Amino acid sequence: MTPFRTAFLLPAFLLAACGDAPEDNPGSLQGDTFDAIADGEVVHYTGTEPFWGGAAGGGMATYSTPDNPGGSEFAVKRFAGNNGLGISGEVDGSAFDLTITPGECSDGMSDRSYPYTATLLLGSEQRLGCAWTDSQPYSGDEAP
Rank of each mutant, 00 (worst) to 15 (best):
R5A: 13
G108A: 12
Q30W: 08
N68K: 02
V42F: 13
M60K: 06
L10R: 10
R127L: 15
P102A: 12
M60H: 02
D107Y: 09
S72Q: 04
E125G: 05
E125Y: 04
A55H: 11
Q30M: 10
G86V: 03
M1F: 12
L29M: 09
L29K: 11
A95C: 02
D141V: 03
G58Y: 08
P102V: 05
D67I: 06
E23I: 11
N68T: 06
P3F: 05
G57S: 04
G71I: 00
A12L: 15
T119D: 11
T6D: 09
T62L: 06
T99E: 11
F96E: 01
L10A: 11
P115V: 00
F74L: 08
T119I: 08
I100K: 03
G81R: 03
A7P: 01
A17D: 14
S124A: 09
D141E: 13
G89E: 05
T48A: 14
C18Q: 14
N68P: 01
D67C: 00
A21D: 15
F34C: 08
S28K: 11
D67P: 03
E23K: 13
G123T: 02
L121K: 03
T2G: 12
S124M: 07
G71D: 02
T62W: 12
G86H: 02
Q136P: 01
E49T: 15
Y114W: 11
F13W: 14
L98M: 01
T99C: 03
L122F: 05
G93I: 04
Y45C: 08
T133C: 05
C105D: 10
L14Q: 15
V42N: 14
D141T: 10
S113W: 01
A7K: 06
P115A: 03
C105S: 06
L122M: 04
C130D: 05
E104F: 04
F51K: 10
T6S: 07
G31M: 09
R78L: 06
A131F: 00
A21S: 14
A17Q: 10
D134Y: 00
E49M: 14
